[in-house]
Nucleic acid binder design. Structure first.
Lengths: 331, 331
DNA sequence: TTGAAAGCGCTAACAA
DNA sequence: TTGTTAGCGCTTTCAA
C-alpha cells in the first residue's frame, strides 16, 4: 500500500505538505504542488480513509434502518438515500431490522463503534431510552417513534381522509378499513383519517376495521374473512399498497368484481400497484423525495450539528387507477 | 468517548492488558480479568472499530454492487447478503451501479480507500483491466463479466431449455423469446437455451427473438409490436419475470387471452409474478440461497485468501402458475 | 502474567 | 511556504 510517506519521500517534501495538497488546505508553493501531484499520480497514491476517520472521529458513512428491504416500499427509499450519499461522498450502509428491537440496538452499537456519521431510521419499536445514549445524528423517516427527532413523513391522516372521501364520492355506502400493525405511528394516523370521515355515519361499526399488519398474505386472509362476513362492504381503504394487492387477490378469489362491486384504494404509490389487474388506485407518497430529503437533512445535521428538531411533512396525491369506479356505473 | 486508556487507568492495569481481555487473547490473570471487565462495564467502554481497522488494514465491511435495488430481483439478494454479514459481524454496504462503468469504478476506488474487506458484484460492464488493480477479494454474482472470478449463478442455459421445452410440451407451435440486454452474460445463456430447443424447428425464425432489456416498460412495448406482427405466436419465453409481467400486460391490452391463446413463462421466480392476473409461470432461481452463498464464499475468501477460483452453479425450478396452459384446453 | 512502546496512515498545531 | 511532531485508539512485539 502506498502511503503519504511514500509520496512525501518521492516528491522530496514532508508529509504535511502532501497532506496540504491532497486536502487543498494551507499554503503550498505551486511548484511544490506540481511535484506532489506528479508523485501522487506516479505512485497511484490513494489516501487511506480509515486513518482519516480515526483522526476526525467521522467515517463518511450513513446508515439506513428499514424493517425489510424485500418489502417493496423500501427499495425506492434506499435508492434515494444512496443517491444523496453518493453526491456527498458518503458510503451507504443498509440495515434490515425486521422490526426487532434487539437487531436495532445491535446495529446502533455496531455503527457507533464504526464512527458512522448519521442514521436514518424507519422504526416502530425504538423508544426514547434506546436513543438517549446515541450520540450520532438521527433522522426518523416514514414514521415516528417515541422520541423527538427531526422527521420526514407524509400527512397520513389527511391522505387517509382523502382516500376515504374519494370512496364516498364514488358512492360507496359501506367502507371498511384494513389497517397496519398497532405499533407503527402511521397505522394510527391513517386509521384516524378514515375515522374522521366515517365515524358519524349510520352504517359505521368498528367491525369494519381490521388489521392486516402491512403484509400481503395476512391482509389477504383477513380481507377474505371480512368480505365473506360483510357482503355489504362496497369500498375498501387499505392502509398500504402491499395489502391493497392482497385485497385485489382476495376479491378475485371470492369472485367479487373489482371495481364494479367493490372499490379498493391503497396507500403508498409503489409500482407494484400498477402490475395487478385491475391496477390499484392509491394515495401516492413522494417516496423518492422523502428518502432524498431525509438524507439531505441528515447531512446538514452532521455538518452543523444543529440541535433543533424539525418535521417535514410531504403531501400525498390521489392516483386513480382501475380498482375504483363510481357505484352503479358498471362497464 | 471512553477509550482503552480510560479503562486501563480505571482498572489499574496497562492498555495491553485491557486489549488482551477484550480480544480474549494472551495470558491474563483471572483476578485482573475481572477487574478489567468491571471497568469496561462501569465505563460502558466500546472499542473503536476505526482504530482497529487502521491497525489491521481491514474494516469488517462487505459491499454489494447491484444495478438498481429498485429492480425487484435484487432486494432478496441484498437481504441474503446482509443476513450473512450480520452473522459474521460484517457491515453491509449497498451500491447501485446503474450498469454504469463510471459508477462501478468510483465505488471500487472509494471502497478500497475504506479498506472494505470484500465485494460481491452483479455486473455486465466491468472488464478485466478494471479489476486487475483491485486487491480485495471479489465474488461475481448472478452473471459473469470478462474476468475470472469465483462465481455464484444458476445454470441459465438449462433453465431456458426447460422453459422452452415446457412450452412445447403444452403444445405451443410457435414460441418467441424476449431476451435481456446484450452485454449481460445470462442474456446470452438464456437465449442459447431457447435456441437449443427451437432452432431446428420448421417454424423458427430469428424474428421471434427480440430484446426487452430486462425492463418492464421496454418489454411491454416490444412485445406489443411482436404480437401484433406475429399473431401466430402462441408461446412466449421471457428472459426475466419483470419482462414477463410486461408480457402479461401487453397481452391484456391487445385482448389476447393468457393462457388460453398465449402461454407465457418467465425466469427468476420473484414474488412480483404472483401478484399479476394471471400469475406468472416461471423458472425460479434460488435467489436467497445464491445471495447467502455468495456472501459465505466471500467471507471464506477474506479469511483464507484462497486464490483458487470456483464457480457454484445452482439449479432452477419450474414453477407452474396461471400464465401457461396446454393448447386447445381452454377452460 | 504484565507493561512499555512502536506503529497502523493521517491531520493539524506549532515552529522555523 | 515548509517541516517536525504529537496524537487519533488500537494491537502486538518484546522485555521484564
Amino acid at each position: 500500500m502506498v502511503t503519504i510517506r511514500d509520496v512525501a519521500r518521492f516528491a522530496g517534501v514532508s508529509v504535511a505538505t502532501v497532506s496540504r495538497v491532497i486536502n487543498n488546505k494551507g499554503y503550498v508553493n505551486s511548484d511544490t504542488r506540481i511535484r506532489v501531484v506528479q508523485a501522487i499520480n506516479q505512485l497511484k497514491y490513494r489516501p487511506n480513509d480509515v486513518a482519516r476517520s480515526l483522526f476526525k472521529g467521522k467515517s463518511k458513512m450513513i446508515a439506513l434502518f428499514v424493517p425489510d428491504i424485500m418489502n417493496p416500499f423500501f427499495p425506492e427509499l434506499a435508492r434515494a438515500v444512496e443517491d444523496v450519499c453518493n453526491v456527498h461522498h458518503y458510503t451507504f450502509v443498509l440495515c434490515n431490522t425486521d422490526n426487532s428491537i434487539e437487531k436495532e440496538l445491535t446495529y446502533l452499537n455496531a455503527l457507533q463503534q464504526k464512527s458512522v456519521d448519521g442514521i436514518i431510521i424507519v422504526s416502530s419499536t425504538l423508544k426514547k431510552e434506546h436513543i438517549e445514549e446515541v450520540t450520532v445524528p438521527i433522522i426518523a423517516l416514514d414514521r415516528t417513534f417515541g422520541v423527538e427527532l427531526s422527521t420526514v413523513k407524509v400527512n397520513n391522516r389527511e391522505g387517509a381522509r382523502e382516500a376515504t372521501e374519494y370512496l364516498k364520492l364514488l358512492g360507496c355506502q359501506c367502507i371498511a378499513h384494513i389497517s397496519g400493525p398497532k405499533n407503527a405511528s402511521n397505522t394510527e394516523e391513517r386509521k384516524q383519517g378514515y375515522l374522521d370521515v366515517v365515524k358519524n355515519d349510520d352504517w359505521f361499526s368498528c367491525n369494519y376495521i381490521v388489521s392486516g399488519n402491512y403484509n400481503l398474505q395476512v391482509a389477504k386472509g383477513v380481507i377474505t374473512k371480512l368480505l365473506e362476513r360483510h357482503p355489504e362492504i362496497d369500498g375498501l381503504f387499505v392502509a398500504n399498497d402491499v395489502m391493497g394487492v392482497g385485497a385485489i387477490k382476495a376479491a378475485e378469489e371470492l369472485g367479487i368484481n373489482v371495481p364494479n362491486n367493490l372499490s379498493i384504494i391503497g396507500f403508498d404509490g409503489i409500482s407494484l400497484g400498477e402490475t395487478t389487474s385491475p391496477t390499484l388506485t392509491t394515495i401516492a407518497q413522494p417516496i423518492y423525495k422523502m428518502g432524498s430529503r431525509a438524507a439531505e437533512m441528515l447531512i446538514e445535521l452532521i455538518i452543523n450539528n444543529d440541535s433543533q428538531k424539525k418535521t417535514e411533512e410531504f403531501s400525498v396525491q390521489l392516483v386513480e387507477r382501475q380498482s375504483t369506479r363510481p357505484r352503479g356505473r358498471e362497464e
